[in-house]
Every structure is written in C-alpha cells, then in structure tokens.
Design a protein around this nucleic acid. Sequence first.
DNA 1: CGGTTCCTTGAGGATGATCAACGAGGGTGG
DNA 2: CCACCCTCGTTGATCATCCTCAAGGAACCG
Lengths: 195, 195
Amino acid sequence: MQLDLDLLYTWGAIAKEYKKGEIIFDEDGLANFYYQIVEGCVKMFNTNDKGKEFTQGYFFDGQSFGEPPLFIDERYPSTAMAFQDTRIIKLTKDKFLKILDEYPAIQKQFLNLMAQRIHSKAVTSKDIINQSPAFRILAFFNTRKKNKGGAPELVPFTRQEIANFTGLRVETVIRALGKMHVEKKIEIKNHKIYY
Amino acid sequence: MQLDLDLLYTWGAIAKEYKKGEIIFDEDGLANFYYQIVEGCVKMFNTNDKGKEFTQGYFFDGQSFGEPPLFIDERYPSTAMAFQDTRIIKLTKDKFLKILDEYPAIQKQFLNLMAQRIHSKAVTSKDIINQSPAFRILAFFNTRKKNKGGAPELVPFTRQEIANFTGLRVETVIRALGKMHVEKKIEIKNHKIYY
DNA sequence: CGGTTCCTTGAGGATGATCAACGAGGGTGG
DNA sequence: CCACCCTCGTTGATCATCCTCAAGGAACCG
C-alpha cells in the first residue's frame, strides 16, 4: 500500500530524514500522523520489563506503517525505529482521514492492507507460539522470501534480529542454525546464512 | 461490527445452526462466505504438529469473523469452531463485497474493525511472547474484562482454554493460578476463578 | 449413581535461558 | 599498514522453567 507522493504533498505532507536507530514513535504514544516510507527501513517492536525485545515487523520502501491507531483512536502498541537511515513522508491524522473519505478507492486499498496485516499476524502468531526454535526460524525466513522454492538467498538479518523476531535468545538461534545447517535445511557460508 | 440482519437477508444471506464443537471452516480452506454470529460463540484456533492448540480468538453475539481472507484472496490461517451451540448468518463472498462497494459507510466500519483487530493482535503477541505465565494469564484476563478495576468477576474459561490462549500447558496454568491466588492477584473460590 | 469433564499434584526430564568468555570481521584513524 | 574498536558470532557450563507423564480427586449432569 502506498499513497501517491504528489497527492500527499498536495495535502500538506512533509518528508523527514531519520538516522538509523532514531525513534519515529513510541509505544503508548498518541497517533497523530500517517507515515509512509520513501526510502529505507523501519522496525516495529516491543520491549518487556527485562529489556528483551520482540520485533512486530519490518517495513520497507513505499510501505506505510502505524496506521491502525489512526482509525480507532488508540495509542501505539509498539515503538517504531529507523532500521537504517530512512526518509519518511508524514501527514497529519485528520488530513489522512479526509483523504480516505474523499477517495473511496483508497479507503478500499487500506481495507485490503489491514486485512493483509491481520492475516500475516495470525500466521506469525501460530508459527511462533508452541513451536520449536528451528520451526520458528524457518517460518521467519519464509515470510520474507518471495520466490519460495527458488535458489537459496542471503538472509539479511543478524542472529540477534532473528532472535528478536522469533522470541528466542541469540545463543539459541545460533545453536538452532548450526543444527539446521547439519540437517541441510539452510546454508551457512562464512557466517552468512542462505535460505 | 455487525451488519443489519434485514440487509443481509435482502442480499440472500442464510442462517445456520452449528452445534457446539462443529467446525465452521478449516485452516487452509478457501474463504467463500462472510460469517456473522446471531447468537452463540465461536473460537478460532490453530493446532500444531504435536496436537497442541493455540487459540487465536473468541467471537460473540453480533460479531463477524473470518473476514480478512475475503478481502485478499488468501486461505484461512486458522480453524473456526462453534464454542457453544451457535446460530450464524452467512453470505457469499461476492455479495458481501458488493455490499461494501455499495455502502461506503459500511466499508469504513470494516476498515475500523480490521484496524481494531490488528491492534489487539499486536497487543496479544507482545503479551504472550517473552513473558512469564502469570503475566500472560493476567493479560488474557484483562483483554476480556470491560470494567477494569471493578469488582472481581467470574472468569468463564476452563484452565485448558486459558492454556490454549496463552500458549502454556494446563498444569502450568494451574500452578501459576495457585501462586497468583496466594499473591492475591486473583480470587479462587471453589475452583472458580475471579478477576 | 455412573459417566464425563475438569482440576490437581508429584516426580522427572528436556529445553531454552543465562552467564561468562572468547573469536572473527570490518572499518577508521594514526 | 597496523592498532584499535565495535559489532557480531560462537562456545561451554550451569540453571530455571516449563513440559511431560501418570495418577487421582472434585464437580457436574442426566
């Protein structure tokens, strides 16, 4: 899902650069803007009392994120952070909602987007809860591989990030990856993971 | 979210009774209908290879369920089962989508509903993953208590159901509940839980 | 009263978390 | 080019927690 940049600018949107690691919005913060990535990558995550992180998802070029609270008057359930240097275009909540009212076709696209998100969250939950480390890791790899069954591709995540997404610890991920390599479920060359 | 019954019947919807335990649709099945509960309760869940169940959610009187796949041409990520004897009204996918096209106000309501669902799934994930049994259980209780902070209410779920929702085992739930009782986080009278 | 479902307890085991070191690689500045 | 730093990866030992298995007990209902 991606709104036309000209349209956004016409409605008064502004672009902003976020450095890698910079926070875009905070868990429990009020939702005042629609955000769309022009270029870069954003991570949404939670942190528990013991400081352990859980990654809710990643968003890339052209994708919007953090929309649900705009529709339902809730606070953000997670924190959003620039995962790399990222250029984001933002529009105020009320103008965004006006665009939706004005263009039913766009509203429909967002409906589809929300449906897509629910679907993938349901799949992610079921893949993480009640499952072995290897299963969780493979599920994670699968969600971000387009051409399933194709040649193994480099997995562009650190072991720590894999851990954060799967709810495991780094060491557990490393040991699981080792076993998966032996079982030929993945490739590891020079510390790099291919799947 | 709930569509007007007259409207549904006008468009050719039909009502159907499901006995407790009856399957309404299966994980990986095609999505051909819009479902709305007239009276009763429906549980959505997954089962892993070892037969362990994970409850994705419960739906009650007046609520619709299983909509996302209708919008995005995906299969059901979970199974839906009547949790009690339940009367459900169903409408074919194409007619449902036509209603949305015809009534932008309804489309908007569904957009809000989907946003609500994403929000609660995000909250549920963060509450379950990386947390202690007691924390998970309390989070579960909180999601289904309207008047937070009010007098303790009877929790209408068996320990097995609590386990299924929190990704724990029955025995773990029982032991955690015992400890929570001692710590006065919950009430237990005659095996019944109050929170 | 008998059957069914749900709850409870204990013992033992498996698994992932934790803690503590250390190794490898890549980039930077002297 | 080398020394340094910083991030990321790795390993082993130990621990805590939750799961598993097995056996009964309690509550409820026809």
